[in-house]
Computed example of a mutant assay.
Amino acid sequence: METKIFKKENLDDAVELLAKGELVAFPTETVYGLGAIATKEQSVKNVYAAKGRPSDNPLIVTVANEQMMAKYAKEVPDRAKKLIKAFWPGPLTILLYVKPGALPDAVTGGLPTVAFRCPDDQLTHDLIGRLGYPIVGPSANTSTKPSPTTAMHVYHDLKGKIAGIIDGGATRVGLESTIIDLSVEQPIVLRPGEITPEQLSSVLGEKVLINTGKVSDKDIPKAPGMKYRHYAPSAPVVIVDNPEDFKKINYSEKTGVMALETVLEQLSIPTENKFSLGQDLTAADHNLFGGLRYFDEMPEIEQIFVQGFDEGETSLAYMNRLSKAAAGHHYRNNN
C-alpha cells in the first residue's frame, strides 16, 4: 500500500480515503493520531492491526465539538459541560457512558464507557467536519514505541500500512492529552497530560483524584496507556532523578543522554550522543518523544539516560510517559 502525504490543500483527498474505510493519520496539538471512522467496525479493527495494538485497549473517539459527542454519549453531565467550556478544544479527553450500540466494541473494548476528545487543531476540525463522523485517534505509531510528534515519525512507523498522513507540522504539546473519568462518583485522572488535576479541580469545584493503580492482565483498561508497555525505544531507558548524577555515569560511545541544555553543557560526550530536552520542563514535555525516537534510530545506542523531574503536578505527565518508557528503572536504584 502506498502511504500518501497530504497538506492542507489536499484535505478533501484525506476525507475521501477515510470515507472509504481507509486509515489516515492526522495532527493534533499533542501527538499525531491514527484516524478511522469510529462507527465502521472493520476500519477500527484495521487500526489495531496497523499499530500492532492489543485488541482490549479501548480507543479515544475524536469529535469536532460537543454536539457531535452528544450523539454517542449516553449523557453529557454538568461536570463534562464545565470542562468542555474551559478546555475544549484542547488536550483534555473525557470518559463518559456511551449510548448502547452507538459505537462498535472494537472502540469501547466492550465497556459501557468511551473517551471523547476535541483537539485544538484546525486541520483536524476541518477533517472531521467535512467527514461528518467522529474518528478514532490513538497515537499513530507502532504499539509500544514513542508517540509521533511529526508526520515523518508516523511515516517511519506506518509506511505501507496506512493510506495517508496529513502533515500539520510538529505538534505543540508533545505529550498525549489528559484523560479524566467522569463515569464515576469522584472524578479521577486516568492519564496525566498538560491539563493538571489542580486545573480540573478548580473548574469542577471538587477534588479530582489521580489514578495510581495498575490494570491486571485479565481486566480491560478504561482508557489508553493504563495497561501495556508504552513509549519505549529499543534500547533500555534509565531515569536520572538528580541532575548531578549525570556526572557520575560511565559513558561510552553506545550511551545516549537526554537532558536539559544546562546539564548537557557539563558533559564531555560526543554531540551525537546528546539530545537536548530544552531549557525547562515545558520544553522537555515537547521534546521527550522526539528524543526517544532520535536514539531509537541509532542502532549503536545500547542505553539511554534521561533526566527526570520532580515538580509536582506540572511534571506528572512527563514522568508518567518516561516511567513507562523506562519500565520504572531509575539510576539511583543501581547504586
Rank of each mutant, 00 (worst) to 15 (best):
D241G: 09
S201H: 11
G256A: 09
Y331N: 01
R117I: 09
I249C: 07
I188N: 04
K82F: 06
A38D: 09
I180K: 02
L277V: 04
Y97P: 00
T212I: 12
E253K: 14
A163K: 15
Y228V: 08
D12G: 00
I220C: 07
L260I: 10
G193E: 11
V47M: 02
E9G: 06
T282I: 14
P91N: 06
I94P: 02
K85W: 03
K45S: 02
L316G: 01
I84N: 01
A317R: 08
P197E: 06
P233N: 08
I179G: 07
N57V: 08
I249Y: 04
K247V: 00
P27D: 04
Y251P: 03
P100K: 15
K7S: 09
L123Y: 13
A163R: 14
L316V: 00
T144L: 12
T28F: 07
V61T: 08
K20A: 13
K51E: 06
V98W: 01
F309T: 04
E253S: 12
K214V: 12
G328R: 04
K45Y: 03
L92F: 05
P243Y: 03
V237H: 01
V136H: 03
K45R: 15
A73K: 03
P221K: 02
P299T: 11
G168E: 05
L200Y: 13
K218Q: 14
A284G: 07
Y72P: 02
P187I: 05
K7A: 02
H330Y: 15
D245L: 06
E2R: 14
V173M: 12
F116Y: 15
L209N: 14
E66I: 08
L209P: 04
E302S: 11
G109Q: 13
Y32S: 03
V136F: 05
K40C: 00
S143C: 12
L292Y: 03
D157H: 07
G33A: 07
S55H: 10
N273L: 00
K51V: 05
G225E: 06
A73H: 05
T150A: 12
P146W: 15
I94Y: 08
A163W: 12
I249W: 03
G205A: 13
L23D: 02
P104F: 03
L204W: 07
K85L: 02
T39F: 08
P104Q: 09
P27F: 10
G110L: 08
I179W: 09
S268K: 15
D217K: 14
E16K: 15
P148N: 15
S147A: 10
R332M: 00
K51T: 00
I5R: 05
S183W: 00
V189G: 09
T262Y: 15
S268Q: 15
I304C: 02
Q307M: 13
K81T: 05
T262V: 12
D105H: 14
L322W: 08
A223T: 06
L11Q: 11
K214Q: 14
T196Q: 11
G278P: 09
N335H: 14
A70V: 07
A38W: 01
P224V: 03
V238P: 04
G278C: 05
N65R: 04
I166Y: 02
G328N: 09
N10C: 05
G90A: 04
S139D: 07
I135S: 06
I304G: 03
P197L: 12
K4L: 13
I179A: 06
N57S: 08
Q307Y: 10
F289I: 05
R117G: 08
L95D: 01
K99Q: 11
G132A: 04
Q67L: 13
D12Q: 15
T39Q: 11
V31M: 07
K214H: 13
